[in-house]
Structures are given as C-alpha cells and as structure tokens.
Design a protein around this nucleic acid. Structure first.
Lengths: 170, 170
DNA sequence: GTTGAAATCGTCTAAGG
DNA sequence: CCTTAGACGATTTCAAC
C-alpha cells in the first residue's frame, strides 16, 4: 500500500479533475514542479489507483438525454438481476449503489423523454418495488474530490472496514 | 442549435468516455476516420456543448475518502444557502440535485471517516430537515452515456421544457 | 527534484477526390 | 465531407547533476 497523499498530490489531482488533458509541462507549472517530477507523481497516482482513468465529460442534456431520475429499488435477494445484466439490459442506468437498510439499491438513470423514462421505470419495476424521483435541475455534479480536513484524515487509520471492504470502489 | 448526433459521433463519445486522452490518430482508427476528420467532429462536439470537458477520474476510496452518502435536504426556500455557498462551506458535497416534490434537494457527499460523515450531516442539518442514506458499495458509476433507442429519440422534438429549461445542465 | 537535449509523437495546414 | 501527405510544434523521456 502506498503512503498518504501530500499537498502537491492533491493539487495535481485537483488540476487533473478540472482538465484531464494537461501536459506534464502545463501541470508542472501549476504545481511548481518540473515536468519529469510531475510525470513521476502522476504515474505513481495512476499505479496506486487514485487516478482511475481519464474521460470526456458528456453533457447529457446536449447529447439528447435531458432527463435524470433516481430510482430506489427494493428487490428480493435472489431476483436482483441488476448486478449482472445491467450493462446489457439497462443502458440507461448510469449508476448503481447499494444502500444501507432494507436491502435497497439506488439507481441513477438518464432518459431522452418522458415516455422513455416511463418505459425505463416499467422495465426496472419488474425486478422489485421501486420508488422514483425525477431531477428538476442539477446545481453541479462531478465536483472535484478535494483534500479532507486533517482532523478527519487521521481517522483513516481506523480498523478493517475502511480499507479492506472498500465500500465505494470504482 | 446543432443537428442530431449520428452513429459516428456516438462512437466517438463512447471512446472518449472510456479514454479521454486518446489522440485524434488513435481515436480515428477506432472509428474508422482519419485524424483531421476526427478532430473536426470532436471540435464540433465540444463547441456544441456535448463534450463539456475532460477530467481525470478519481477513485475516492483510494484517495482517502472511502465513504459516500446521499442526503435528502428539505429546506425552506429562503434558507437554502447551499446554492451559493456550497463551494466554500461544503467541499464534501460533490453533487447537488433539485428533486420534484416537497422542495427537496438531493446531495451526494464523500467523507474520510464516520466521524467526518457525522460532522457533515450535522453541518448540513443546520440548513433544513435531512434524511441520510449511507452507500455500502457502488456497482458502478460514471457509466458512459450511450445512444438512446430510436423510438425514444424521436420524442426529442417534444415541446418547450425539454430544451429550454435544461433540467439537467452541467 | 532539476536542468538540458534528443527523439518521438501529435497536430495542423494544404491539396485533392 | 473525408483522405492523404508534409511541415511544424510540442511533449515525453533519458541522461547527468
């Protein structure tokens, strides 16, 4: 396991979340480092799994998918097919979270139109009891992950569950 | 307004969501286009707002923020300070959605530890009535936005609200 | 971690179909 | 609207300090 991230690492992460296409030269200037040193740190962050990849951010509204909704799905253990077949059967589901309590699953879906959204709900509804919530607007999303306050970071050293089971893995 | 996206555009978007650092050359090979033609299309998608930017994808768990929670916040209209001050006061809030019904707001927060999460809840709770839900695990998130089925796309031409008010803008 | 230099790669422009 | 070819510019990478 790699050691904790220092301030420079966080500055690099911050810049790379704002513009993932920065060259090592440009990035280095922003964090007061030379290009090779910057490249080393980025490579290390990639290998440590902190940087999971680089991707274009798509504005779904401009891409013909203006509707977003959250769906709470309560399915019986054996029937929760979403885990395995989501990729093929539910392309509109862009996120799947398992929540605490009531064996609940939270889905986030994108749709092109109200009929489309309705059809998605109907399809998901076959897998369990659902509770839907339509998003009117989004103030922001994908906000850069930033360095947590020091007093909370110290709790990182806490036992077991925070490291091993990886509650929110990619 | 630009016209609708064709199949090649969607293939480009798909590839760029998987690897946002592809060169026009590499990308062109994947979609059977030359580099200049690919550059033209990408530039057009950028200017149309479909591609909103490029960013590094951070694995929050590996970055010391293993906990994720959703917070439903029901705040009185005048006291909903989250809109303006979120950036400074709530760095842990990575998403803000306005939901239909009950003047509800859905927040997504990331935390380093349980005490940290508890402290965040307490801080948000000062702005209204909250209902919290902790994420146990995430099957996936940030799934690439894909081309919607044709029968649903046709509904894009529906009136007013789907274009003008942009329910899910970046 | 820094500096400097060389090699590589990508981008851009232009001409042509 | 796409393709090919060439030149320019930039980045990455290696070496040495």
């Amino acid at each position: 396991m790699s050691r904790s991230l220092d301030g420079t690492d966080w500055r690099i992460l911050s810049e790379l979340q704002e513009d993932g296409r920065l060259s090592f030269n440009q990035l280095g200037r922003k964090v007061n480092l030379s290009a090779p040193a910057t490249a080393d740190r980025v490579r290390r962050l990639e290998e440590a799994g902190v940087i999971a990849g680089y991707q274009a951010r798509i504005d779904a509204a401009h891409a013909g998918l203006p509707l977003t909704a959250f769906v709470k799905l309560r399915c019986s253990p054996g029937r929760c097919l979403l885990r395995t077949t989501a990729s093929d059967e539910f392309p509109e589901v862009v996120e799947i979270h398992k929540l605490s309590g009531s064996s609940c699953t939270l889905l986030r879906v994108r749709a092109a139109s109200m009929p489309h959204l309705e059809e998605i709900f109907e399809r998901i509804g076959r897998h369990g009891e659902i509770d839907t919530q339509i998003v009117l607007s989004t103030q922001y999303e994908g906000r850069p992950v930033t360095e947590p306050p020091t007093e909370n970071r110290s709790a990182e050293r806490s036992p077991g569950w925070s490291r091993g089971t990886r509650p929110d893995g990619a």
